[in-house]
Amino acid sequence: MRKQWGLLAVFFGVALVASVFGSNFLSGYNLENLTNRTALFSILALGAGIVIAVGGIDLSIGSVVCLCGIATPWLLVEHGWPAWQVVPVVLGMAAAIGLMHGLLITKLRLQPFLVTLCGLLLYRGLARWVTGDQSQGFAGEFDGLRSLALGRIPVPFIEGYRIPATVIPLAVLAVGTSLVLTRTVWGRWLLATGSNESAARISGVPTQRLTIAAYVACSLLAGLGGMLFIFDIGSAQPSDFGNFYELYAIAAAVLGGCSLRGGRASVGGIVLGTATLQVLRNAIILLGLSSQLEFAVIGAVLLLGMTADELLLRWRERRAERRAPSG
């Protein structure tokens, strides 16, 4: 919980600065947009968080977003497949990618960093090659399908702000993940595997199966996220769609309290971490800072946040030490 309070403070701090100095921050349109982007990126970050919790890392999230996101309009429009076939095929492809990562990492004992780094190159390359590096879009059709991301649900008694439809899948996934992590044997096992794989295995935990499941979940969420992203924006370039998304996902998960050493995860923290990053990006634009500064600002704020957090923790420990009764 400690991390989340600090994060909450940063979130509101940035939001406060943005709403005071940027004129449109609190406008319904902007908030709607922020909610939508937070929901989309949170889906990716949930996957990153699960893999980090089991003690791994997935650098291929952005490329899986690209491959699955691009494949959706490509199959629908260029190849004329029906939607009821496209959705399971694309999600199946994402799951297969995760399964491959998991098998390579557990059975062949390859390092997750390297396996998924190769994935990062591989899937983007594939996406560019298959489409001839051409922009893919829905050509003004498939509005029904796209309303999964574009839909807006009006809130009674509130004018100008409607809840983006992407909040629904996020809510379902977040609640589901949270329940699995805290209430089920598999969640306990996942965290135990992340904190000490050897101890977990000796205690009878099927650690390999859990690791594989975590990578499948991560890629599946990235694939689903890719679809929702492309529904949202309508068309995208294979060369840049989803670039750096894995870093947003990982940064959000770590901000939200997932330890890169494994064994820790908090769904609420992951969503809050994503929201903080999105508000930060939004603030940079609204405050009229050069968009070229975006990465620099995000990097600096993250670094400051983590440093402050660590210093605060040490200060508290020292204070607890001093206050404790002697003997």
Binding site: V185, R188, S195, S198, A199, A200, I202, G204, G263
Partner: peptide
């Protein structure tokens, strides 16, 4: 090979137990 270092004693103790005695995964 034994401890979940950052976890509570309780979580460490129940680790083997929850797998054998769960209620449909819960």
């Amino acid at each position: 090979d034994g401890l979940l270092y950052e976890e509570s004693a309780g979580r460490n103790i129940s680790l083997a137990w929850i797998g054998v005695r769960s209620y449909f995964g819960l």
